[in-house]
């Protein structure tokens, strides 16, 4: 029995922390390939580069755990960003602009949540519709033109606390927040249950609708923040920005071990997933890999990472089932 326990624990540890192992191996390999890789400057650059999509990825993680999804985050990010920039140019107030950005993100995702909860539209389709609508509104509002000369607004993207760029600070704060929500609140517990088995969650007295709306609202705030940061980083209110970001975010979440069947995923995993993608992009650039080839490699790595994850999980389940069987047989033999 003791032996069984330790083996099972080891299996759990291995499957729970395998993603960090991959990250460490990756850092070592990258460092061997290029000596500049681990320089503070390079690491800081990579962190700033991935900050916006990583914040989106934290939102996606929360949603996917709950059996949901957001395809609209790239578009909503653009809408929240341009409206926030516009408000800043009109009022000159950073705090009002910041609030507007968050509010737009939250509102759009409130609509996502209502579509999913009240009208039972699958999350994939509801947010696909929002993706088109939000992009359209952003373009309508700006008449398709970029908003230039955004002045002090750039502080959000280019300011620093100590030597750490502000977007990275925000990324860390959002990461900690996600970690706290998922692991330390009853909302987080409910979310895992809703994603893992919605009907069982309802039969346990969990208000499933409220959990789903809550997940979208949190995601909305993250998306709004990401919009503000992106506009500020690129020094322009661009209604066309953020295209395809939803897939970057999904990629980070999935590489980080978030299960598309719901009920599984962690903030730490997603952060690791985001860094794995970031490091990969960076090392391929540093070593001069052809940019078209880069896409092929990235795609292959995603398939590999998820494939390994699934394989490890299935394997683990089989092993524990086998172990349960033998222990039962032993018991029977005793009787």
């Amino acid at each position: 029995m003791n032996n069984l326990m330790t083996r099972e624990k080891w299996q759990t540890i291995k499957s729970r922390y395998s993603i960090y192992l991959v990250l460490i191996v990756m850092i070592i390999v990258c460092n061997l390939l290029n000596e500049n890789f681990l320089s503070p400057r390079n690491i800081s650059n990579i962190s700033a580069q991935i900050s916006v999509t990583t914040i989106l990825a934290f939102g996606e993680t929360i949603l996917i755990i709950g059996g949901l999804l957001d395809l609209s985050c790239g578009s909503v990010l653009a809408l929240a960003g341009v409206l926030s920039v516009y408000v800043f140019k009109e009022t000159g107030s950073l705090s009002v602009a910041f609030a507007v950005g968050l509010l737009v993100g939250v509102l759009c995702n409130w609509v996502n949540g209502i579509l999913v909860r009240r009208f039972n539209i699958p999350a994939f389709i509801a947010t696909l519709a929002m993706m088109t609508v939000a992009r359209g509104i952003a373009l309508l509002f700006t008449k398709g033109q970029n908003i230039y000369q955004i002045g002090d607004y750039v502080w959000f993207g280019q300011g620093k606390i100590g030597f750490v760029p502000l977007p990275v600070v925000f990324m860390i704060i959002i990461g900690i927040l996600t970690w706290y929500i998922l692991g330390h609140t009853s909302f987080g517990r409910s979310l895992y249950a809703v994603g893992g088995n919605e009907e069982a969650a309802r039969a346990s007295g969990i208000n499933v609708g409220r959990v789903k709306i809550g997940a979208y609202l949190i995601n909305g705030a993250f998306v709004g923040l990401a919009g503000i940061l992106l506009m500020a980083r690129t020094n322009v209110g661009a209604p066309n920005s953020g295209q395809g970001y939803e897939f970057e975010a999904l990629t980070a979440a999935i590489i980080g071990g978030t299960s598309f069947s719901g009920g599984l995923g962690t903030a730490g995993g997603t952060l690791a997933g985001a860094f794995i993608v970031g490091f990969l992009n960076n090392i391929m650039n540093l070593t001069g890999v052809d940019s078209y080839l880069q896409q092929v490699i990235k795609g292959a790595i995603i398939a590999l990472a998820v494939g390994y994850d699934m394989w490890a999980k299935v394997n683990r389940t089989r092993k524990t089932l086998g172990a349960a069987k033998t222990s039962n047989e032993r018991k029977e033999a005793k009787v």
């Binding site: 517990r189 895992y192 249950a193 893992g196 088995n197 069982a200 969650a201 039969a203 346990s204 969990i206 299960s259 069947s261 719901g262 009920g263 599984l264």
Partner: peptide, 14 residues
């Protein structure tokens, strides 16, 4: 009844 992918502890306190 159960949320199969979660652990015993979370299922019990659900």
């Amino acid at each position: 009844g159960i949320v199969p992918v979660r652990d015993v502890k979370e299922n019990v306190t659900l």
